[in-house]
Design a protein around this nucleic acid. Structure first.
Lengths: 162, 162
DNA sequence: CGTCTTGGTTGCAACTTGAAACCACCGTGT
DNA sequence: ACACGGTGGTTTCAAGTTGCAACCAAGACG
């Protein structure tokens, strides 16, 4: 999965994460983990994927520090739990879910949605804001290097936006 | 890519989007489109992927209504532009980028970041809020069915969270 | 002792990926 | 008219990935 990248040091801020979770199953595993799954069998039943694939994906998530194993209380087993880094995926998962809700369901089609546990009301839409609070769209932003930029740095030969 | 799903009607709100953009390249193509790429050759040079793959991915994005083609002004060519649905991916891309910035770069490692065009300042962090404005974490939310829930609906045999 | 559950690994066929070659069409130069 | 380079692909084929199914092993259970 990671081997199409010859030089991961030059990967930009979008590509690097994709190297870690850029396949169908990994994100679903993480979502299940957020929903409380911890055991190999739980993930397998919930997602319905082959055991070897789950095994490989969990190994990959462990290797990327997105999940970690802790000994289970009820036997010689392990449980898989999200690390800090893994929990950091929560906004991404919400973004994915909201996009799905917007564009992948017929208006009359029933589907689950994300609600605030305390009030029981649906959550607000994610929105990107500037420091001063303005809501920003794609056209209001650019990617730029940070202010410090000495002259002696090696430039990439292919001029990518990375 | 889409054929591991035997019954896409039962796919939940996270899985459906993944069916459309759940591979390495598609999201990078969308990101490049946000950054202004429009032509086949632009995407190819910018991403450095094989032409057949780009061809397939663009076809897939077109089929999912994420991009559409418009005739180019400078010849018999086509340009690929994001649809409304495609532009809806902006928050997801931001979430991915912010996660990448947080966890995939050494603290001293220079990298581009997303800035507000108008002020030149970095954008704020995405945060999920409840209707009343409280910031919500993963543990403050659940997925639930909407209020209307008649009795006669067919239940899936495998009890997933979908 | 046998067998059930949990958590895997291994073998193998089918599918996908990707580098490179090929193709077609247009505009330009000569 | 005719070669030529740029653009936008498709085809070919080898190598890698996926996923079903079978197998394995260790502890719990009757």
């Amino acid at each position: 999965m990671a081997k199409r990248v010859s030089h991961k040091d030059s990967m930009c801020g979008v590509a690097r994460p994709l190297d870690a979770i850029g396949d169908w199953w990994s994100l679903l595993i993480v979502r299940d983990a957020f929903d409380g799954s911890r055991r190999f069998g739980e993930f397998q039943r919930s997602l319905g994927l082959a055991k070897n694939i789950l095994s490989a994906r969990l190994r990959n998530l462990l290797a990327h520090g997105i999940m970690e194993t802790v000994p289970a209380a009820d036997g010689p087993y392990q449980e898989y739990v999200l690390t800090e880094k893994g929990r950091g995926l929560f906004p991404l998962l919400v973004a994915l879910r909201q996009w799905g809700e917007d564009f992948f369901f017929a208006p009359d089609e029933a589907h689950v949605l994300l609600v605030d546990k305390k009030s029981g009301l649906p959550v607000r839409r994610l929105e990107l804001r500037a420091q001063d609070g303005r809501v920003l769209g794609a056209e209001d932003t650019v990617v730029r290097l940070p202010p410090t930029l000495a002259g002696g740095e090696k430039r990439p030969k292919r001029a990518t936006k990375c």
